[in-house]
């Protein structure tokens, strides 16, 4: 296990601890990792690509499986009508990996705190939408279409038609207010 592996594993219980709820879900874990890497340049080495549920890299879930296997975190399933979710809690083994990844976790503590502060109040659907907007924004930032805002809202709506244009606009406004959009 190299230092980057330890850093990725150490980050999982840290994100769970820092979340206001004291745990995080799988969607939140995936999107927080995306935000850390994309918005804060934290060198996690993931390769996110786009799915209808937002940016995704199966390596994040592989790391979660590994963290569970090593007893760094424990997961429980929560059911609700229409679906289910996960609650990922820190487990006793977390302290060992946090210690091994201490230098990384110290260096990027502000970034982790920032992500939890800015996005910790969003539910899974809002995280899917916000991360999709940021992914589209980053693609637009490279090719630069004129009137990027209108294009961005329109494209996000095509990818995620179950959101209304008004919902997408509100989310774009919120992300713009946070200063995380590069194309607008």
């Amino acid at each position: 296990m190299n230092n980057r592996d330890k850093a990725r594993l150490g980050l999982i219980p840290v994100l769970a601890e820092k979340h206001p709820a004291g745990y995080i879900g799988r969607t939140a874990l995936m999107k927080y990792m995306y935000f850390l890497q994309t918005l804060r340049d934290v060198p996690l080495g993931y390769s996110f690509s786009m799915y209808s549920y937002g940016p995704f890299d199966s390596d994040v879930l592989s790391d979660l499986s590994m963290a569970e296997s090593l007893n760094l975190v424990s997961s429980t399933t929560v059911s609700f009508y229409g679906g289910y979710g996960y609650r990922i809690h820190p487990a006793p083994g977390a302290e060992v990996v946090k210690d091994e990844a201490r230098e990384f976790l110290t260096r990027y503590k502000e970034d982790v705190d920032w992500v939890v502060a800015e996005f910790g109040n969003l539910n899974s659907a809002d995280l899917e939408l916000a991360s999709t907007i940021i992914y589209v924004d980053r693609e637009f930032a490279e090719i630069g279409p004129p009137d990027a805002r209108a294009h961005l809202i329109s494209l996000v709506n095509e990818i995620k038609p179950h959101f209304t244009l008004e919902q997408i606009e509100r989310s774009v406004d919120s992300l713009q207010h946070k200063g995380v959009l590069a194309s607008i």
Binding site: Y53, Y81, G83, N123, S124, H162
Partner: peptide
């Protein structure tokens, strides 16, 4: 499967 609570279908 339909998306619920505003999430994408899967």
């Amino acid at each position: 499967i339909r998306g619920t609570r505003g999430r994408a279908p899967r």
